[in-house]
Design a protein around this nucleic acid. Sequence first.
DNA 1: CTAATATAGTTAGACATCAAATTAAAGGAG
DNA 2: CTCCTTTAATTTGATGTCTAACTATATTAG
Lengths: 149, 149
Amino acid sequence: MTDHLPLFRIFNEIGIIAQLSQTRFEAVMPAGMTLAQFTILNHLVRLGGPKSPLTLARAFQVTKATMSSTLGRLEAKGLIWVTPDPDDGRAKRVDITDTGRVMRERCISAVTPHLEQMGQLQDMPTQEALLPLLIRMRETLDIDRNGRN
Amino acid sequence: MTDHLPLFRIFNEIGIIAQLSQTRFEAVMPAGMTLAQFTILNHLVRLGGPKSPLTLARAFQVTKATMSSTLGRLEAKGLIWVTPDPDDGRAKRVDITDTGRVMRERCISAVTPHLEQMGQLQDMPTQEALLPLLIRMRETLDIDRNGRN
DNA sequence: CTAATATAGTTAGACATCAAATTAAAGGAG
DNA sequence: CTCCTTTAATTTGATGTCTAACTATATTAG
C-alpha cells in the first residue's frame, strides 16, 4: 500500500514535517507558549477582534472542544479576554489583551531568526513551488470534509 | 510575520493538512485504531520484525516515551508481541502477532478506497511534484534537529 | 575491579486534539 | 404560546505527543 500510493507517502512526509516543525517552534518560544496559542493571538491581532470561539475554531479547522480548551488556557494566562456576546446568549466574544499583544511580539521575536535561518537552508524556488501545491491540497481535503463545525 | 515569510505559511498549510488527513484516516479505520498504531503494524510487516522500541521511535521520529505509550496500547490489544532482548538486558524486541497482521489488512482495506478517491481529486503531476519537495524539506529539518533519540 | 558515563525503557505531567454527551439559548412549526 | 430542532459552548474520556526525571543495564576509564 505505502508502496503503491504516492498519496500515502505524501501524507506521511507531511505528518512528520508538521510534527518536527511544531516541536522546533515551541522549543524557542517563551516558556509555556504553544503554536496553537500563538496562532490564536496572531489571528486576533492580524484580523482584529473580537471573534467568537466558533469562528476561531473554523478558521483553524479544529473542533469547538479543542478551541474551548486552548482559549481556557490563554484566558487563564491573561492573554485573551472573554465576554458574553450581548446579541446572542449562547455565544462569547474573544479578544486579545495588552498582555497578549506583548506576548505575541515576544513570540515573533523569538521565532523569526530561526525561521530565517531555516529558510536559507531551503532554496527559494523550492519554497515558492511548494506553497501553491499545498494550498490546493488543503483545499481539496477541505471541500471534501464532513463539516465538523 | 505570517505575511513576510513564505516558510511560515508553508508550515501552516502542512500543519492543517496533517491534521485533516489524519482525522480522515482514523474516521474510516476499524474502531480504536489510530494512524500511529497502524503505521507501526505496517512497518513491522513491510520491513519485518522484530525491532526494538528505540529503532521504531527513530524510524518515525518520535521520542522513546511516545513509542513506549503507543506500543503499550498495541500490546494490550494483542496486536504486537514484546519480549526481552536476549542479547541486551536493557532492550526489548517487538514483533507483530497474527491478530496484528489481520488488523493491518483490515485497516488497508478500509482506507484504500478513500485514498484512491482522494487521489483522483488531485491530479497526478501535482502529486509527483510534491513528494520530492517534501522529502527534501523533511531531510532539512532532520539534519538540523537536536537528536531526540 | 570499581567508578563514571552512556543507553534502553518507563513514568509523570502537560498540551492539543478528537468524538460523544451535555447544557443553554435561539429559531421555527403549528 | 409551546414543542422541536438547531446552534454555541463545555465537559469527559481517549490518544499521541513532548520534556524531564527515573530505573536498570551496559560500556568505558583508571
